[in-house]
Design a protein around this nucleic acid. Structure first.
Lengths: 212, 212
DNA sequence: ACCTGAACACCGTTCAAGT
DNA sequence: ACCTGAACACCGTTCAAGT
């Protein structure tokens, strides 16, 4: 097997098992069965290794096919694939946000979203912006879930406002009924996607009437 | 001055100047004029230092006031404050996504968004989800800008599809006209906010008619 | 009460040396 | 052509010692 591929396999396995911080030239080399310095001719540097890991992840995203689907189905397929990926590889979100997507596969994912928006009837000049809005949200959602931003503290104001005087959180007070229990993140993701699909549909409808 | 505050000042100054990676117990201690180990009684650990930095940032966000504004103005004020913060402290986005918001100030920011959504007329049971949708997008946008995900490569397909066969990027081909030039990120952020405000208005309108 | 110095187990990377 | 060993300049953190 190609040494470079073996190195990537090892790095991804370590990241899946113990997080991105556990990926070091030393731990990767150990897993491959070689000295840290032996990695350099094959992958260049730690940064290049992270870029290559990102490329692998995006390759997985491209495995999904959207041929013959409606634009709603296409977007849903891509969004779910993105979120599934974030769950399978919890470190992927951090990586995506922290470095520009240089892999050629990244452009192909972007293109798939462009195509879905175009077939929805979104005016050409609005497509790139809406693609960034969608991908930013999907990435952010995945990262919030896996990174802990949507942690239990977000939902349960009891035990968090201990050091705040009463009456400073009127919003929380009024919404108490909806803030108690656990949240179904799958359900919430579906609802968000439905809302964003509505937004796209509205864009397309206005586009057909011509711009304001 | 309180030693703990001085330590936080130093850490934030270093992060602003040289990035979050440059913040180490050693560099912070150097700036304060003390040995690394002298920090521990005051801040506990590196992780606690990062949490405290996050708290400071959120405190800045609470300085904005939204009293007497329409809900559209309230949301715009908060969104702009969030994005300005991300520009002033480029490391803040990474920090927000990578750890749950434990600071009491975080709940107050959330509450401000709750209040705006409530006064827009969004049904109570949809407010927490829409708050997460909004904050996820705003954070993600700031992080994409400062972290480089919205880098020049995203916009200019020339020079990136060198290793892809022709015809694999139909979306890019059709949108070539809109993908050439530089993007005004301020303008794009405004347009995104306007779209999300439309979405909220639509929610409120449907809520008044009663649920489906 | 607060700080220091030495130490431990880690990093990424360079460079000369081995086969 | 590919890999190793030693070294350099870094990490966060512990622990005994100083004032």
């Amino acid at each position: 097997m190609d040494r470079r591929e073996a190195i990537l396999d090892a790095a991804i396995a370590i990241a899946d098992e113990s997080g991105l911080d556990a990926v070091s030239m030393r731990t990767v080399a150990d897993r491959v069965g070689v000295t840290p310095m032996a990695l350099y001719p094959h992958i260049g540097s730690k940064g290049a290794l992270l870029d290559a890991m990102q490329g692998r992840i995006l390759g997985e995203l491209l495995a999904v096919t959207t041929a013959g689907q409606t634009w709603q189905e296409q977007l849903a397929t891509l969004a779910h694939a993105g979120r599934d990926l974030a769950k399978r590889h919890p470190w992927a979100g951090t990586l995506m946000f922290s470095r520009p997507s240089v892999a050629p596969d990244a452009v192909r994912v972007t293109d798939a979203i462009y195509q879905a928006l175009l077939s929805a009837g979104v005016p050409d000049d609005e497509v790139p912006r809406l693609e960034r809005l969608l991908s930013t949200f999907i990435l952010g959602y995945g990262l919030s879930e896996t990174g802990g931003r949507f942690g239990p503290g977000e939902l349960n104001p009891r035990g968090r406002r201990g050091n705040l005087p009463d009456g400073t959180l009127p919003g929380h007070a009024r919404l108490a009924k909806w803030l108690g229990g656990p949240t179904d993140w799958d359900e919430e993701f579906e609802a968000d996607l439905a809302d964003l699909a509505d937004l796209i549909e509205e864009k397309a409808r206005r586009g057909r009437r011509g711009p304001d």
